[in-house]
């Protein structure tokens, strides 16, 4: 047994060292939702926005937000975030995206860890759905699905985020203006 351990010690150590970043990355991706199923909408849309900001870039960006007023709030809001991913489509006519497109996102948010928050509305027309990924008491991520006849937007924030201040992120770091309004009410499950 001792010989086995001695023979395997070094290779195991190397394997663990090499695999650690992969495992850490995989864990951080838990609340990352896959949006590539929507790529085909790009050719139908009049306006497409695709944003990918990972943790390293967020850390860098946080340095340029000042410690005063709204900028301080945004800085605090993004402090623990590990990624911001956005796909947004605007169309010239109705019916350019299908319920299957919406379902490709919603189906990922039906997992046991995701909870739909009912106390969000949008100042704009259309439907706004906000989902939170909870790991016990901790918030692990957030997804916003905003749809109307001619618009389809998905925002995915990976990592802990203060949902009450979500609207502060609109217009920052590629997050579009969705007119998010938070009402202080009880949160309900789906």
């Amino acid at each position: 047994m001792n010989t086995l351990f001695q023979n395997l010690k070094l290779p195991l150590l190397v394997a663990v060292m090499l695999m650690t970043p992969v495992l850490v990355a995989a864990q951080a991706q838990d609340s990352r939702i896959q949006m590539s199923s929507l790529d085909h909408l790009t050719s139908k849309a009049t306006q497409t926005v695709d944003v990918n900001i990972d943790e390293r870039l967020i850390r860098l960006a946080s340095k340029v937000f000042s410690d005063h007023g709204d900028e301080k709030e945004v800085k605090d809001l993004i402090a623990g975030i590990k990624g911001i991913y956005v796909k947004s489509f605007e169309f010239e006519a109705d019916g350019q995206y299908t319920s299957a497109d919406v379902e490709s996102i919603r189906s990922q948010l039906r997992g046991p860890s995701w909870t739909r928050l009912m106390n969000f509305t949008s100042k704009k027309d259309g439907n706004l759905e906000v989902y939170l990924l909870l790991d016990g008491e901790k918030v692990g991520g957030l997804a916003v699905l905003s749809t109307d006849d001619r618009e389809f937007t998905v925002v995915n924030i990976v990592g802990p985020v203060d949902v009450e201040k979500l609207s502060k992120l609109e217009g920052q770091m590629g997050v579009p203006e969705l007119g998010i309004e938070f009402k202080k009410e009880k949160k309900n499950d789906k």
């Binding site: 050719s43 849309a45 009049t46 306006q47 497409t48 695709d50």
Partner: peptide, 9 residues
């Protein structure tokens, strides 16, 4: 890829 925008089809 940081941001990609396509406008006007």
């Amino acid at each position: 890829p940081l941001i990609q925008t396509i406008a006007g089809g």
